[in-house]
Write a protein that binds this DNA or RNA. Structure first.
Lengths: 199, 199
DNA sequence: GTCTATAAAGCGATAGAC
DNA sequence: GTCTATCGCTTTATAGAC
């Protein structure tokens, strides 16, 4: 992939985080990326195509830093609480006031909201959701190895949906970040206890 | 309020549910309401004024049917499971594929998404969130009268945030409605069990 | 691949008749 | 109160040069 293309996608994430998907103007994007409008239409069919690619880009970037965070876990030591801590870390990663995280979360929220009215975006969205839920379900499975698979899947879907709800509230300024993080941590505890009861 | 005015507001809710707040075109709204564009500008200052009024209209309508549903509860009989059933009913009310509900949920999601970029909308949003959480916390308190107040508040906040997350997924077509309803019911069970353990 | 210039369409808003 | 007709700005998208 060319540098320009990537630069445009990065700029798109930035502009979307600033103005929203519906507020994104190709002209502003061109200025942000430091290219001409025409080049954007050269690299991406049209506005919707650009949005689709941006969604994929944002997803990849999120996966990347999730993986990095996971790699930065415990080295050789084998603490028994490690799986639970890793799970918490993964879920709380999206509830941080860092530029990258905020940008990704905002763009993700916007693209999800846009998908309500633009079915073209749904494929990408559904895929990312499934992958994300699968990952959380796996980590739950490491915390509670004897819990049935179906219960893990359901718990993971609840936790990821809750994360999106909390994130939306945080980003729209109606819930302080610390509250969102607390609610998320509590929910993990509640779900893990629930899974324990099923054993 | 004139019939025409109300008809325009109803049509606006319909069009917003179909195209989103930023996708609402005055021309399409006029067609939907069966009036001319000019009449819309006669009744509402401009596009923004129209949106503000529409959101107020949608809020009122939601309060109305929530109240109706509450009134349609058990009459004189006093079943012990009634509070739990009322709680479930209240939360699952927003996860139904009825035109009114879909319109209201969509408009609400749009409003919340818009608030990320428009701080002016946050006051109304925060107020509605608090009222809604308070209501759920009260109903949880009826199910588990001995649970501490702080735990009820936290549970209610988790449940309402989850509802918003599930609703967003349902409306954006990445989660079937029946799954969303199942996850919501499970979450209520999990939270109630959690509150029971605190006693 | 990248640009400048421009076409084409979309869309909010108003004027003026009835 | 309600309509038809239209203005004028904004924004997407393309043509064509380099």
């Amino acid at each position: 992939m060319s540098d320009r293309r990537t630069a445009i996608l990065e700029a798109a994430a930035t502009v979307i985080a600033r103005r929203g998907v519906r507020g994104l103007r190709v002209e502003e994007l061109a200025a942000e990326a430091g290219v001409s409008k025409a080049l954007i239409y050269y690299h991406f069919e049209d506005r919707t195509g650009l949005l689709r690619r941006t969604l994929a880009f944002v997803n990849n970037r999120a996966e990347r830093y999730t993986a990095e965070q996971a790699a930065a876990g415990q080295p050789a030591t084998e603490a028994p609480a490690a799986p639970l801590r890793r799970l918490e870390q993964a879920l709380l990663l999206e509830l941080q006031d860092l530029p990258y995280v905020r940008e990704n979360s905002t763009a993700w929220g916007e693209l999800r909201a846009s998908a309500v009215f633009d079915p073209e975006l749904r494929g990408e969205l559904a895929l990312a959701s499934v992958i994300w839920a699968r990952e959380v379900a796996d980590q739950l499975g490491e915390v509670r190895p004897t819990a049935p698979e179906s219960a893990l899947t359901a718990s993971a879907e609840r936790l990821t949906a809750l994360l999106e709800g909390l994130s939306a509230r945080w980003l729209s300024g109606i819930l302080p970040l610390t509250d969102a993080r607390t609610r998320m941590r509590e929910a993990i505890g509640v779900e893990v206890a629930h899974l324990a009861r099923l054993d």
